[in-house]
Design a binder for these strands. Structure first.
Lengths: 355, 355
DNA sequence: CCGATTCTTGTAAGCGCTTACCGGTAAGCG
DNA sequence: CGCTTACCGGTAAGCGCTTACAAGAATCGG
């Protein structure tokens, strides 16, 4: 008897209503804390819900009150070659996503994740799909050309991460300039390194450009030359970083005293390539990263890098988006501070504060 | 002229229809490839959609055809103490999630992620929320007691990961027994280690229990004793692993010749704690992990571990769920094979195959 | 103890989209 | 050239839920 005859398909608010002997409106009100249902009513509804194990349909709810309580997040994945030797930029993006997730939970939102391969052609389609299922969308890196972002922003609120603001959309990013400036100063002034290379990230990344520019500017101010160019083009991945070092060494080039990598993953690859060749870090070559992903401190030697508040970045992105969704207003460009983290890969020894 | 007067709120299929001069039914058909619209009609609709930048509302769609094209994924997050020094079990879960994501994309599904803190009390609420917004749910680890899973499974298809199958729900897991058996044999037979400890994961984890049991059984078969118990209780995190080693050493205990960790993260923490005390791996103590997370090969020394096809695990979980959603039928318990990965932390040298 | 006022609850109208069903038109045939 | 057969496209009925509106119940004052 315990089991009441389940109506055929998934149960609806009508089933709950009839079981509780009230109208669907009352059920809805109890479930949403609207109005002031009588205690008796409330209880009957609640127990009916419990007995039936009723879970309201999110789609119907969303359709009805115009709020899905879902934010979409779209980011790039390290392509289809998954399983193999590539751990790639797993960390950075994931930490940000986790930040988004945490912030979203605070508002009762859930996060709809959608990754896109580097050579997927239907990016726009994918993003539209997500946009249709969410109240707003957070776009990592620059997934779309500015025009695409602007167009999409007309449909649904958009927050971009780590780029420059685009008309119509909001943007949240870290202070690449300040971080790179501090790092450059440390290498040039504190360590006195006279030759530096910048191992870039993907060339179409605004972050990469900003970091590169900041490094060049600071180096120039100290009359230090920065090597860059095609020979030093990485792609934000460990494999990319390693490959650059390998080719350079194979071609017989002499490495600079310090290699500033566009991000930690790249630095990781570089350190590996260097180790394979018997080169010591930091004695022979100093290496630095950018991001401060969790494993950075576990490397040998621990990686000197610039910490981006990644989790915060994600959380802020959500908050900005949420503000836009609920109030219609939000900051269009938020810049978060970064922090130089001096460990040992730059040539410093042991654990110490900023030199 | 270019900009047609946007109707007030977000645009709907009606706006597209009137702009294209057809009925909403035609628009819908063109958009979904149903029926056989005349070429002219098709074009007019398509261009209206393009001009307006129309994106159909996912909620309405879902409500109408009973398919949300969303799978929910619920997992535990390393608690609120986010920013700090904890990288924690970031990797393992994320790789699985990525596998889910990839498999989902193949079917046009998106993934609704929802993490839960370890001490969140409203886990059930959270999961219900996700269930209401998805066509099916994948539950990591064991998020819910069996009864809870069974109950939920009555509402929406459920796939659990890494545990034992529960009535009503489907399950996907790795072959812990075989993996641990191979690892144990390698340590005991190939290396001849006579004292081994098992540094556990969370005690309520089925995976942890399975691994512990398998190790004990194999060791017993070779008359080797396995240390475990309260002194050796970890929690799957790097910090947990390090703490165990620290306390043991502080209490003056002598470590066994080999420490088998419940997972890679734990091993990572152990290796760090050991290094801090000046103990060498593997000369003084051999250490092994389980999972083969991406960074395992980047540790010093590279970690010997058991590779779980994590990405595959996630992909399989989705596939099983999808099969259930679309056809109503699916395997109730899928077991994936694992592979012993011998690197150097066990005492082997250089890169070589399985001993 | 009755009328006025305040609550509570039920009824019904959508939310935006899909699709069954049916009328209208174009194409096929005698 | 008129009628049958196919097709195409429009109309309208929901999908499950929220909520404005109105009716009925309960409460309070006189």
């Amino acid at each position: 008897m315990g089991e009441p005859k389940r109506p055929k398909g998934p149960l609806t608010i009508y089933d709950v209503a009839s079981r509780a002997g009230v109208s669907i409106a009352s059920v809805s009100r109890v479930l949403n804390g609207q109005g002031s249902p009588r205690a008796a009513t409330r209880e009957r509804v609640l127990s009916a819900v419990a007995e039936l194990g009723f879970v309201p349909d999110g789609a119907a709810r969303a359709l009805s009150n115009g709020l899905k309580e879902v934010v979409g997040v779209v980011f790039r994945r390290g392509d289809e070659t998954l399983f193999e030797d590539e751990d790639e930029s797993l960390l950075f993006i994931d930490v940000i996503n986790r930040g988004i997730d945490v912030a979203a939970q605070r508002r009762g939102f859930d996060v709809l994740m959608s990754s896109v391969g580097f050579n997927d052609d239907n990016v726009t389609t994918r993003i539209s799909g997500v946009a249709g299922k969410a109240d707003g969308v957070i776009l990592h890196d620059h997934m779309l050309p500015a025009s695409g972002v602007t167009r999409l922003a007309g449909i649904v609120p958009i927050v971009t991460l780590a780029g420059t603001p685009v008309r119509g959309a909001m943007n949240v990013r870290c202070d690449n300039e300040a971080g790179m400036r501090a790092l450059a100063r440390h290498l040039i002034v504190d360590h006195g390194y006279g030759s530096i290379a910048y191992l870039s990230g993907r060339m179409d990344s605004p972050d990469n450009r900003a970091r590169s520019r900041a490094l060049q500017r600071e180096a120039a101010a100290h009359s230090v030359e920065v090597r860059l160019g095609p020979d030093w083009h990485g792609n934000y991945s460990a494999a990319g970083g390693a490959k650059v070092i390998d080719s350079l060494l194979e071609a017989g080039h002499v490495l600079p005293r310090a290699i500033v990598c566009a991000n930690d993953q790249t630095a990781l690859g570089v350190m590996h390539a260097l180790a394979r060749r018997g080169l010591r870090v930091p004695q022979d070559v100093a290496v630095t990263g950018f991001d401060d992903v969790p494993v950075a401190r576990h490397l040998h030697p621990p990686l000197t890098t610039v910490r981006q508040p990644m989790q915060d970045l994600g959380a802020t992105a959500f908050d900005v988006l949420y503000s836009k969704i609920s109030s219609g207003k939000a900051d269009a460009d938020v810049v978060l501070p970064v922090q130089l983290i001096v460990r040992e890969s730059c040539g410093c020894t042991g654990r110490k504060g900023v030199g």
